[in-house]
């Protein structure tokens, strides 16, 4: 099943192939059928071993839905999610269980993602218990080890989630994921509910875990500062589609899609002198409804450079320079800056 001869660095662990997730609202009196909400609309991406891919975008662009589809928590409406080149939806029960173990997820809201009635040790052990992995003593030892790795001690193991701080709760969430010995960790906005100082600690924890456990990350975030720290590649999502992918360095140096440029220009620079002279690109208007998309390019209604062609023809994601792909008819080239 696993091709051992292929080099580790190019081994594709998790892959989305034209994944669509559409939500159909209920019809009124069985007469009118409202258009589906196209939360994720044809997203393809690959995560190779040791990679850290960040998916960035505004609230409501479908990032979290994509994360849940990749974690096999929701089934895609169309397209495939593949783990080690096997379609997750059609693979057998046993294989899917292995995939479930290998792809773990850390959730956005640390307090909500922990059952308030269970002790931390029970919460972290749940996956091992559910999969009947090892003897009980072995599970307990693995839980203790996982808690130790995230910087929690034996006194926290006996605590209830309500007795922990937000940062500690998020550490529990991470321990619950890594105790399964995963290959891929999907982090859905893991820092957005935390204070700034705690945020940094969690990011450092995630990076040290990547190095010690060899994890591949799929990092869902709208915090471009943190993405720059943790990701090796960036994918920008807008209204359910990926509009640009690039390596982190080249993305931050010279974004090519007008939307990427606008996103980056919205990140404040902690230096008033530079900030005052900086030219901000403001997006026009509001995000269109994901159930009623604009024709052609989805971004054109808010794009300052939109041309007649943008309304007529939807741009494909095309290669644009090394390691970069952009879905725009008129990408901004690095030389223009």
């Amino acid at each position: 099943m696993i091709d051992a001869t292929s080099p580790l660095s190019t081994e594709i662990l998790l892959e989305a192939d034209s994944v669509c997730v559409h939500f159909q609202a209920a019809s009124r009196f069985g007469l009118t059928r409202p258009p589906p909400v196209r939360a994720v609309d044809g997203v393809s991406l690959r995560l190779v071993a040791g990679d850290s891919l960040a998916v960035v975008g505004e609230s409501g662009c479908g990032k979290s839905t994509l994360a849940r589809a990749l974690a096999a928590l929701i089934a895609p409406t169309a397209g495939q999610v593949r783990y080690r080149r096997r379609d997750v939806a059609t693979s057998g029960c046993h294989e899917r269980r292995l995939m479930r173990r290998a792809v773990q997820m850390v959730f956005q809201n640390p307090s909500g993602a922990l059952d308030p009635r269970l002790r931390v040790e029970t919460i972290v052990r749940e996956g091992l218990d559910a999969g009947a992995i090892g003897m009980r003593a072995e599970r307990v030892a693995r839980v203790a080890h996982a808690l130790d790795m995230v910087g929690l001690g034996a006194q926290h193991a006996r605590a209830y989630p309500g007795q922990l701080s937000g940062g500690q709760q998020q550490r529990v969430g991470i321990a619950r994921a890594i105790v399964m010995a995963p290959e891929v960790l999907i982090c859905d906005e893991v820092t957005s509910a935390l204070d700034v100082s705690i945020k940094v600690q969690i990011v450092e924890l995630l990076m040290s875990l990547r190095d010690s456990l060899g994890l591949a990350y799929l990092f869902i975030s709208h915090d471009l500062g943190i993405v720059r720290q943790i990701a090796t590649r960036v994918a920008v999502m807008y209204l359910g589609q990926i509009v640009e992918t690039a390596s982190t360095a080249s993305f931050y140096r010279a974004p090519a899609h007008p939307y990427s440029v606008a996103l980056l220009s919205a990140v404040p620079i902690p230096d008033p002198a530079i900030e005052a002279t900086r030219h901000h690109i403001e997006l026009l208007g509001e995000v269109p409804s994901p159930s009623n998309m604009p024709t052609g390019c989805r971004f054109r209604t808010r794009c300052a450079q939109a041309q007649p062609r943008c309304a007529a023809e939807a741009p494909e994601l095309r290669d644009f320079g090394p390691g970069r792909a952009v879905a725009c008819h008129y990408p901004i080239s690095a030389s223009a800056d």
Partner: peptide, 20 residues
């Protein structure tokens, strides 16, 4: 969210009902 989290670590529906 903790119900979805339980599904993500592979808990069956019976386990989720009984435990959570």
């Amino acid at each position: 969210p903790y119900i979805e989290a339980a599904r993500a670590v592979g808990s069956s529906h019976a386990r989720i009902l009984a435990l959570h």
